[in-house]
Nucleic acid binder design. Structure first.
Length: 504
RNA sequence: GCUCCUGUGGUGUAGUCCGGCUAAGCAUACUGCCCUCUCAAGGCAGUGAUCCCGGGUUCAAAUCCCGGCGGGAGCACCA
């Protein structure tokens, strides 16, 4: 109301605070330029996917925004799940994304430090070694009651700690943080800090068998690595209290932990629990199956890293749970690849077309409508293939233009089509269709990835395979080339006989 | 069940901390026109949100307060 009235009476109240439109991620509070250190800490337990991309891009963007550093750290403290090939795969993924980090390391290289901190926290009485079995521990947690182990003295705990390296078997003893068994936050009910795992580590083999768990390792690593801002997805939110408590007891510097919503596409799960059976049962061809949200799959499909970055930034840094719009990613991608994608003709579900009075022998067609990408020569002899969809819509007497070639009038339709060439003047008002010469035709398959899960159910029709013919020029393209099949869509050449549909 | 987080057009977000400039910006999707020998890209225009609901505070609330409701996550010797 009454803004005008206000303006007259108390104009000073209306002096607005500056608000300007932001570009990119929201600013961080109280960051000194040049002082920020972020980190990207994946566990090498699987192939990198879009979720990794989001985290890594956020980490890098903030480091860059404030002129700081990014640490790339493998959180490899569970030998049961980690494999050497995953370290490599994640690194390949990051490089592909174009993420530049200032330092790479493995948490497992800091085991001596972690042991030292473990000893420290035990000696200070802030942690104890518990030898209860799993069931008892979880029952006590639920019922908020402490076990006998927690009242053991430092001498006992020290002895048990030393025994963890030799005497105890896996599962027989764990180091527990002395939290608060009555805490409302269940993460604080004397959580595990270290446990015994005999599985050989992919890097250190049998050198260690007492391994820190996530909360202990991350807190220590972040602190000693000089991390100022630790970004993680919001399912860790309840563990913030633990993170800070551990560093508090250890009297270590505390980074600021901030969380963001995890990135996932509707019907395109990222979790290994769901993906693994799919791969093992052969429902998808592997972790690079174009239907999957893995980085390798996206790459194969023709999504470029710049599009992923732009997309991630468009999502901003929020905690609200939402399924990301894949179509937005596609749109960004399309704009990026359009200027460099060669245009070729394709006939999907091809139907033969005979032009009886063809008089041309060859023609030059530009490879791109705007950019100068050269021309290709196509031999013609009056025998063509056109798309089944186009063929269906043709009726005797129709006049259509074969793109870049000449106009024809349909004289016969059916399993094959016959026509007469009329003239070669360009007529804007008649339909224009693409064609493929039948001599030297290249037979390819178009793999069309669709949504993987519909209502939590695996979509049996998630991969459509279309038979198609394309021009001989296709053979000259390198694998990995993005092509726009005119009036069909963008596809990436996956092999001599196969393309993957990127998007319309 | 307990605890925590979250709720702006079909979708994703900006704005919310520090109430007025904005009855809401951008992107995407959709529609139309222009351009174009593509159903792409590009240009222009348009449709679409009383900012989850109900109270309260205030001259003024998407923004502050209270109470509901909806959605998600965590509750491991996984990260």
């Amino acid at each position: 109301m009454q803004k005008s009235e206000l303006e007259n009476k108390f104009p000073e109240l209306l002096v607005a605070k500056p608000k300007q439109d932001r570009v990119g991620l929201p600013p961080l509070d109280g960051v000194e330029h040049g002082k920020i250190v972020t980190r990207f800490p994946p566990e090498p337990n699987g192939y990198p996917h879009i979720g990794h991309a989001k985290a890594a891009i956020i980490d890098e963007e903030y480091a860059q925004m404030y002129g700081g550093k990014l640490i790339f750290r493998f959180d490899d403290t569970n030998p049961e799940k980690e494999r050497l090939e995953y370290y490599a795969a994640i690194k390949v993924g990051l490089d592909w994304l174009g993420i530049k980090y200032d330092h790479v390391k493995n948490t497992s290289d800091d085991m001596e430090l972690i042991y030292k901190k473990a000893q420290e926290i035990i000696q200070s009485g802030s942690a104890y070694v518990c030898t209860c079995n799993k069931e008892t521990i979880s029952k006590n947690r639920r019922e908020m009651s402490a076990c006998r182990c927690s009242s053991g003295d430092i001498v006992q705990n020290t002895k048990r700690w030393n025994d963890m390296f030799k005497k105890y078997k896996p599962g027989e003893a764990i180091v527990r943080f002395r939290g608060d068994m009555h805490a409302e936050n269940t993460a604080m009910r004397d959580p595990t800090l270290l446990r015994i795992i005999d599985e050989p580590h992919p890097i250190h083999k049998d050198k260690y068998r007492v391994w820190p768990n996530y909360d202990f390792a991350v807190a220590i690593e972040d602190s000693v690595d000089g991390v100022t801002h630790a970004f993680r997805t919001k399912e860790y939110e309840l563990r913030n209290e633990l993170y800070y408590a551990i560093l508090d007891r250890l009297k270590m510097r505390k980074p600021k932990v901030l969380e963001f919503a995890r990135l996932e596409f509707d019907g395109m799960p990222v979790s290994k629990r769901i993906l693994k059976p799919l791969v093992e049962e052969g429902k998808v061809s592997g972790y690079d199956d174009p239907r999957l949200p893995t980085l390798e799959a996206m790459r194969r499909r023709g999504i470029v890293p710049e599009a992923i970055r732009k997309f991630v930034l468009s999502l901003s840094f929020t905690k609200s749970d939402a399924f990301a719009p894949f179509e937005t990613l596609e749109s960004f991608n399309r704009k990026i690849i359009d200027p460099t994608s060669i245009r070729l003709f394709i006939a999907t579900d091809p139907v033969k077309l005979i032009v009886k009075n063809n008089s041309l022998a060859e023609i030059d067609i530009p490879n791109h409508p705007q950019k100068d990408m050269g021309k290709r020569k196509i031999q013609v002899d009056g025998s063509f293939y056109i798309s089944g969809d186009d063929a269906k819509s043709l009726k005797v007497g129709d006049e259509v233009r074969l793109l870049e070639l000449y106009n024809i009038r349909i004289t016969k339709v059916g399993t094959s089509i016959e026509a007469d060439m009329t003239d070669s003047n360009f007529k804007p008002q008649i339909p224009k269709i693409q064609w493929v010469p039948s001599q030297n035709v290249v037979k390819i398959e178009v793999l069309i990835p669709k949504i993987l899960f519909v209502n939590e159910q695996f979509n049996e029709n998630s991969l459509e395979i279309k038979q198609a013919f394309t021009e001989p020029h296709y053979l000259e393209l390198n694998v990995g080339t993005e092509v726009q099949f005119v009036r069909y869509g963008y596809c990436r050449k996956d092999s001599a006989s196969q393309v993957i549909y990127t998007h319309k």
